[in-house]
């Protein structure tokens, strides 16, 4: 069963030299990235509500399977989905 947050939660992300996720802080806890499964970008709706995001499906060393994204307009990272 997966839980899906409707409003993505802001997280603090640390990246490597190529801009890929290394570790992030979510709800007071730090989650180092163990493995990046998939990566994809969307760029939609520039004419009204612009959504430009880079998504990652990650497994963390803390045992989480998540989808995070980086808002390419603001640079902020968000946790979008958590798989139980």
């Amino acid at each position: 069963m997966t839980r899906l947050w409707e409003v993505s939660e802001l997280i603090a992300m640390e990246v490597d030299a190529t801009g890929a996720p290394l570790r992030f802080r979510w709800r007071e806890q730090v989650h180092p990235v163990e493995h990046i499964g998939k990566r994809w970008r969307v760029d939609l709706g520039w004419w009204h509500v612009h959504i430009w995001r880079e998504h990652y499906k990650l497994a963390t060393e803390t045992g989480l399977l998540v989808i995070v994204y980086r808002d390419l307009l603001t640079g902020q990272w968000y946790l979008q989905r958590l798989y139980d």
Binding site: W40, R41, V42, D43, L44, W47
Partner: peptide, 14 residues
């Protein structure tokens, strides 16, 4: 229109 184009538009700008 852009609003109605749906899948005809490419999903990103790459």
């Amino acid at each position: 229109s852009l609003d109605e184009a749906g899948h005809r538009l490419r999903p990103n700008s790459e």
